[in-house]
Amino acid sequence: MNSGDELFRRDFEITRADLVAYAGASGDQNPIHQDDDAARAAGLPGVIAHGMYTMGLAARAVTEWAGGPERITELTARFAKPVVVPADAPATVTVVGTVRRLHDDGAVEIAMTATSGADKVLAPARATVAAAS
């Protein structure tokens, strides 16, 4: 494994139903994630995914690559752009993870990009996965 190596590339779909389920599970019932009128009133083009939903997908990509969450020690993201989720079709988010740095103790620091259409929605996002013991 070398710096710059691609570790995973995943396409995820986000539907309105996913956002409703996430709102209930996370406690974030902000209407901009469920209601177009509320989103437009906030100056958005329409309903957007929770930033934490997109980060959750990036975390899912790392979890699946690592074979579980237990070795994920660090996870960070900056919310750069919203992901607009239309009512009639899912939004797609592509998460790509590459090796950013290998630590002396065997941990892998992963740089992730998350894009939706032409937008980088998480920038930057990173994860550190400890060496398998």
């Binding site: 930033g51 934490m52 660090e74 960070t76 919310f79």
Partner: peptide, 8 residues
């Protein structure tokens, strides 16, 4: 919400 970090 601008940035989020988890250290486990």
């Amino acid at each position: 919400h601008r940035e989020q970090r988890f250290s486990h």
